[in-house]
Design a protein around this nucleic acid. Sequence first.
DNA 1: GATACAATCTACAGCCACTAGAGGTTCAAG
DNA 2: CTTGAACCTCTAGTGGCTGTAGATTGTATC
Lengths: 139, 139
Amino acid sequence: MTAIAIGKLAEIASTKVQTIRYYEEIGLIQPFSRTEGGHRLYGPEDASRLKFIRHSRELGFGIEEIRGLLDLSDHPETSCSAADAIARAQLEQVEIRLEKLKALRKELKRMVEECGHGRVSQCRVIEVLSDHRHCGGDH
Amino acid sequence: MTAIAIGKLAEIASTKVQTIRYYEEIGLIQPFSRTEGGHRLYGPEDASRLKFIRHSRELGFGIEEIRGLLDLSDHPETSCSAADAIARAQLEQVEIRLEKLKALRKELKRMVEECGHGRVSQCRVIEVLSDHRHCGGDH
DNA sequence: GATACAATCTACAGCCACTAGAGGTTCAAG
DNA sequence: CTTGAACCTCTAGTGGCTGTAGATTGTATC
């Protein structure tokens, strides 16, 4: 028997036990069986599946996108282009987020650098936050 | 009378009406008065305050941080250093997010480039998502 | 003044992706 | 056989809003 309990699975995939139960609730992963007492039993392939989910989440994929990717990997005979499309869309989102964050960093840097270190009444931080026109960026 | 209704305020600050009511609920902003019928009435200074909140939110500050900044700007005689500290902490967070996103972009780019455009069974996207060891990054 | 209709009101449910807790049961080691 | 860690279900909470229902108010036009 290579069956593992939920705690072990959580450890392997660096997840919380609650998170696995949540994934089960929304239909992403199922234990292959239960003990007589009701404890969930998982196989090694469930560890892979869970790692897949976690890694995808870390990469910023949403649950529905992951569901799509899992469907694809469950049907290996289908075309790769769907998975490719999901990844490309994700890449696009990341590029956008990156640009926004860069503009943001610029603005924050300027705020911190220009802080007069005096009274709040002359504080650039407060002033800049009060008025969007101070932004160099276009967010 | 320069009093404005909530809808007008929302328009000025590019917010939703519901959001303003939510901010009132959590104590960030209050109408200076109400009509006999119960409609909220705001002054021009409320527009500034709301813009301050919205702009701060766009910059990634959390509600509690904004509450802190508002407290500061409500007490202009205090030192600027507290506002500076909040902004610095925020900048640090942004730098971290930026680095993570860059690593992520690298990984996604590689995924998309290596996609074999064949069957899912040979798809690099699925494969890479299945196994963290494929990552060049350190996320 | 009547009427129509937009804007506002309160109260509550829902979103995402978990996370935490209560209170009870089961499993495995000694 | 006992202990105590791990597990179970169920419910509620997080942050920061957003959406809906049904009632009321405000305002423009006739």
